[in-house]
Design a protein around this nucleic acid. Structure first.
Lengths: 348, 348
DNA sequence: CTGAAAGCGCTTACAG
DNA sequence: CTGAAAGCGCTTACAG
């Protein structure tokens, strides 16, 4: 073990390179940036010297001068498997474009979300990609960002009474198809376990659920509809209560894979046969759901694709702005897939 | 839909506030920073005006001036469930300290890793937390960062022939205990499915595996030891080949949960009873492994804790530096847990 | 092809 | 308690 800090060796700047090569700092800057007016010979000479002296370009100085950062800010409610896949998609696109990524988490709190947005603005991010907190019902704070000239792109969860870019699933239809799949399989008393109605994506999914039931002339029972079944505890409590009642449901449609698996486990503990006595379909398509027994049916929300498309949308906006084209808000849909696996494979 | 960009409204600066309030810009800066020499009355007045005019502090300008960034860079090989948990732990600590997070992914490539480190240096990050790529066998590129005065803290995967901070599992022991657990349960022909030997963590785990076998006087067969069983395909190929052979193994110890579950599935397809004919223990403790059937035994690597400790270590270093204390490299161990569940519950 | 000068927006040591 | 001045490290319009 040895002392490792030698902060005294100051960072090399273009001034050091300039002195070393007997040219002006501004010329060094141009040479490093491959400015066309600098001869190839000089560019090579300067760039070689830069490597030799371990020169590191200072992004902060350049960004301050240029007013841009080549950095994108991302705000997510949680860092779980769904959002980390989305982040992976965003990272893929950004790193290809040589853009950096600053990640903030809101923990589903509106206040944290505001703080995160503020931090990102101070950091001069060129764009903000956000999936809103469960508490967020208004887009004022986002409009504030936009008014400061920073594009905001929502992905997955969004504020809808508000015009802005967004990349989202076809939530109503996804849910409709999931429930229709259950109905086609012969399930009749179908539970909806969703998230808070504050979030439009859950309102839409509930609408899809209701549409499928109505279309099939199945009765709609408010006893089977739950809007705040997010936590593990509430999922399990609801599942136990419903499945031990005199008139148990015969299927669950849940807002996450985790909730679906908790229901599956409760049913299993109660000796209920899946899929014959109870069908279960989740949402998300976590990579491990294919290993459960029975394998979990689910909506595949294409989270990585949501992330990719959101990031790509920014680069489209950028291109348009550079061409002085008019930039208008736009919604992009990433259609979800219904994966029908064993947990809904009722023998009819 | 409407046009939303009004980039012409220029950002408000301390000069605007100064003009508005008839004081000097430097005084504004002090007031905003709660400098003790500025009266409470003025601080309030300035801060109120700042909010009114929607002033946004420009971190780049401040950081350039101060030479720090209040930002930490993170480099991970992949954004999977293991590393996203670690990132969640890092984020937790950093956001409490009001530090930003810049995330880069190396895709397990040494070249990408170098590029990521370079980007982070240009961004003036105050510290770099890294879990190295599978290809990385030397710490030169990390030493280069350290020589530039930026602390480097390795977490999970690390270069060992190199003195630096690190936060890691007790890899050798974890593996030893996992394999000892298998042996205690009566398994005798135990397969090791690990990662590349380039990475020390896998070398250590293999050592733990070997130590447990030797201690129990079990024969060591190179046919049962695999160092590059990372991909889904290779896991499955190996599992099929071994399990259909004349002398099949009776247990697997794998370097990830995903690999363990793939083995489990192969065994299931071959009609092999788990845990009676075959025991399986994975690594990671993905949140969904408790829902597989049988439930997966695993090493819990405490990934979130690895992330938390790594970030905390930076703030310890920072505190020491501020106190002019000597800062020496340090290794912190996050002990893994052995979770014994159904997949190794052989009836004896 | 090359350079001098101004400025991005802040902070801080210094002076009053 | 308040301000003038310098400087962080770069880029760019301008001049030659």
């Amino acid at each position: 073990m040895s002392v490792i800090y030698m902060n005294n060796n100051k960072r090399i700047t273009i001034y050091d390179l300039a002195k070393e090569l007997n040219v002006s700092p501004s010329y060094i800057s141009k040479a490093l940036n491959n400015h066309p007016l600098v001869s190839m010979k000089m560019r090579e000479k300067v760039q070689k010297k830069a490597i030799e002296l371990k020169y590191k370009h200072n992004s902060y100085a350049a960004n301050l001068r240029k007013g841009i950062s080549r950095t994108i800010g991302v705000v997510v409610p949680q860092i779980n498997s769904f959002f980390s896949e989305a982040i992976a998609g965003i990272e893929e696109v950004c790193s290809n474009q040589d853009y950096g990524l600053v990640i903030c988490r809101s923990h589903d709190s509106y206040e944290n979300e505001c703080r995160a947005l503020d931090t990102l603005m101070r950091q001069n991010v060129d764009c903000i990609l956000i999936s809103i907190a469960a508490e967020t019902y208004s887009g004022e704070h986002l409009q504030n960002i936009i008014n400061n000239g920073i594009p905001v792109i929502q992905f997955d969860r969004f504020v809808d009474n508000f015009n802005a870019f967004r990349v989202v699933n076809n939530n109503e239809e996804m849910a409709y198809w999931a429930v229709k799949h259950l109905i086609n399989k012969g399930y009749k008393r179908i539970v909806y376990l969703g998230g808070t109605e504050v979030l439009t994506i859950y309102r839409l999914r509930k609408e899809g659920y209701l549409r499928a039931l109505k279309e099939a002339n199945l009765s709609i029972s408010t006893d089977l509809i739950f809007d705040n079944a997010f936590s593990e505890k509430s999922t399990i409590d609801i599942a136990i209560q419903l499945l031990s009642s005199n008139t148990p449901p015969d299927a669950f449609f849940t807002g996450s894979d985790y909730a679906a698996l908790n229901v599956l486990q409760v049913a299993d503990n109660l000796g209920i046969n899946i899929p014959d006595e109870l069908g279960i379909i989740g949402s998300g398509n976590d990579i491990l759901t294919k290993f459960t027994k029975p394998r979990l049916s689910a909506i595949d929300q294409k989270s990585m694709e949501l992330g990719r498309k959101a990031a790509n949308l920014y680069f489209e906006i950028l291109a348009k702005e550079e061409n002085k084209e008019k930039v208008v808000e736009k919604e992009e849909i990433v259609p979800g897939d219904i994966l029908t696996r064993e947990s809904t494979a009722k023998s009819q």
